[in-house]
């Protein structure tokens, strides 16, 4: 009977907390759920997310690199082609991971797995769910970035301690895309519409100075590419990788800070549309 009485206190205490209209200060419950689910999920799937950029690095860096030869790095010095594309691939992988987690994954859990439906019948608010999911996405992003940086190290592509800053920087990039992606998902109704996300991502991947310098384009296209978020991520990581910073670095970071802010505003503004039908 004492257990019952104690239990009663616990439930009363849980009810006596302060609640917001869309938020119960309990995003950590969503995070711990995510970690628990990861534990029982397929480790191979997790590990494979890290593999993709590594494969690109080996194939393009080694295979194509032997044909291309050295190229000009951010500060004007010659670097190997592999060293040139590695930071770009990391930026792309941060983008892809964050977008996947905040669009497809959210869309699927919402409409098919009915996971959020269950969560939202508790005292969790939509904001708890959104924050928890974004945090999980960033955690995974950090994990992958760490792995990728380690591979770069093994391939001898790390030449300065500054390069270690690529890890937090890629989390910044992931944050920008994740907060934005979730906001965009709130407008999506069908899987076909979700496909449109790819039509945006693929060209960005191909054209954001990932595999060759921006200078090959005519001026107007250069401007267009520079307006895209991925280009800023690629350039930011590239600068960090060789430890060469300048005013542009601040612009790149600023771009992402603004993107995160806008993304969060968009997502919170759309929370009801996203989670409450």
């Amino acid at each position: 009977m004492s257990v019952m009485a104690e239990g009663h206190e616990a439930t009363e205490a849980a009810r006596a907390r302060k609640f917001g209209s869309l938020y119960s200060r309990n995003a950590s419950a969503v995070v711990s759920r995510g970690l628990m689910a990861t534990r029982s999920s397929n480790w191979l799937v997790m590990a494979s997310g890290f593999l993709e950029p590594v494969l690109f690095l080996v194939s393009m860096g080694v295979g194509l690199g032997s044909i291309v030869g050295p190229v000009q790095g951010p500060s004007g010095q010659e670097i190997s082609y592999a060293a040139y594309i590695a930071p770009a691939l990391l930026a792309v992988s941060a983008m892809n991971g964050a977008i996947y987690d905040s669009t497809w994954n959210v869309f699927f859990k919402m409409n098919f797995a009915k996971l959020y439906q269950g969560m939202l019948y508790t005292s969790l608010g939509p904001l708890d769910v959104a924050m928890g999911e974004i945090f999980l996405a960033l955690l995974r992003g950090l994990l992958y970035a760490t792995g990728f940086t380690a591979v770069m190290g093994m391939m001898g592509l790390l030449t300065t301690p500054w390069a270690l800053l690529m890890m937090p920087a890629s989390v910044l990039i992931a944050f920008g895309f994740a907060s934005f992606g979730m906001g965009v998902t709130s407008f999506m109704k069908t899987f076909q519409q979700m496909d449109w996300v790819n039509f945006f991502l693929l060209p960005m991947f191909l054209f954001s100075a990932t595999f060759y310098p921006l200078s090959v384009y005519p001026e107007p296209i250069q401007w267009l590419v520079q307006a895209m978020p991925l280009w800023h991520g690629v350039e930011l990581l590239r600068q960090i990788s060789v430890g060469s910073f300048g005013p542009a670095t601040v612009v790149h970071i600023g771009y992402y800070l603004v993107m995160i802010l806008v993304g969060i505003l968009l997502t919170t503004g759309r929370l009801r549309a996203l989670f409450l039908k």
């Binding site: 849980a14 907390r17 439906q117 269950g118 608010g125």
Partner: peptide
């Protein structure tokens, strides 16, 4: 919402258990 639901227990028509757990 969160405050109201703190008092509620809900059995929806369709089970929405967490299949990953």
């Amino acid at each position: 919402g969160p405050e109201v639901r703190a008092h509620l227990g809900v059995v929806p028509q369709q089970d929405n258990l967490d299949e990953e757990l």
